[in-house]
């Protein structure tokens, strides 16, 4: 966002500039947080949980998240699964192909620190943050869909704290157990969750 990076620098210098910028910040953040289109790609078992989160029982679309198959149109990259050294340059390339503002969620232990391959894995990258900036880390191997939704809500909270022209805040770590981010229920239970027998 070339223009969006330069405008606040001019406006902030004016007297009362921050008063003008606050609602603008709010609107832009709210819009971006409400429409995080994630990129359709998965690397290992975490991808199965990612698919489960997108499907009927958990439903990413409630947060306004839909997948786009091309990096050019996606805002959020959910690195789901073991990132091997061979795959790492491709992921970096995909991240570079995404348009600003772009966000990254590292899902699962492998993407956070190498996971079970930390000690003996000769072919696994020990953490995605070595090649691309990560906004949210989600613990778990693989994380449950609840944890992933938690991570997405945390991502939204982080976007809401953005300020134009200032660097993004530090990465958020989601612990394996559910934390402070919980999903408000959308509608009456009969509507909300299809009951799966057994």
């Amino acid at each position: 966002m070339g223009l969006m990076d330069r405008i606040p620098a001019y406006v902030d210098r004016l007297p009362g500039g921050s008063v003008v910028m606050a609602p603008v910040d709010w609107a832009i953040n709210e819009v971006q947080a409400s429409s995080m289109w994630y990129m359709l790609f998965g690397l290992a078992c975490c991808a199965i949980e990612l698919m489960a989160t997108g499907a009927a029982r958990y439903d990413f679309d409630r947060l306004g998240m839909i997948f786009r198959a091309t990096p050019r149109q996606s805002d959020l990259m959910i690195v789901a699964g073991t990132l091997t050294l061979k795959m790492a340059p491709r992921v970096k390339l995909l991240h570079e192909q995404m348009a600003e503002p772009r966000y990254v969620i590292a899902m699962g232990g492998c993407t956070t620190y190498g996971g079970p391959f930390y000690h003996d894995g000769y072919s696994v990258l020990k953490g995605v943050d070595k090649i691309i900036p990560v906004d949210v880390f989600i613990a778990g191997c693989p994380p449950r869909p609840e944890a992933l939704l938690n991570g997405c809500l945390a991502m939204q909270e982080k976007i809401r704290r953005n300020k134009l022209g200032q660097p993004r805040g530090p990465a958020i770590h989601i612990p394996p157990t559910a934390g402070r981010f919980s999903i408000p229920s959308g509608s009456p239970p009969s509507e909300r969750d299809p009951q799966i027998p057994g």
Partner: peptide, 22 residues
């Protein structure tokens, strides 16, 4: 969402409305 037994977009906009129906 209805056809796939999901809800579709729910949390964007006034959240109080979303409690009413999908």
């Amino acid at each position: 969402g209805r056809i796939q037994r999901r809800l579709g977009p729910m949390l964007t906009g006034p959240k109080a409305w979303a409690r009413f129906s999908m």
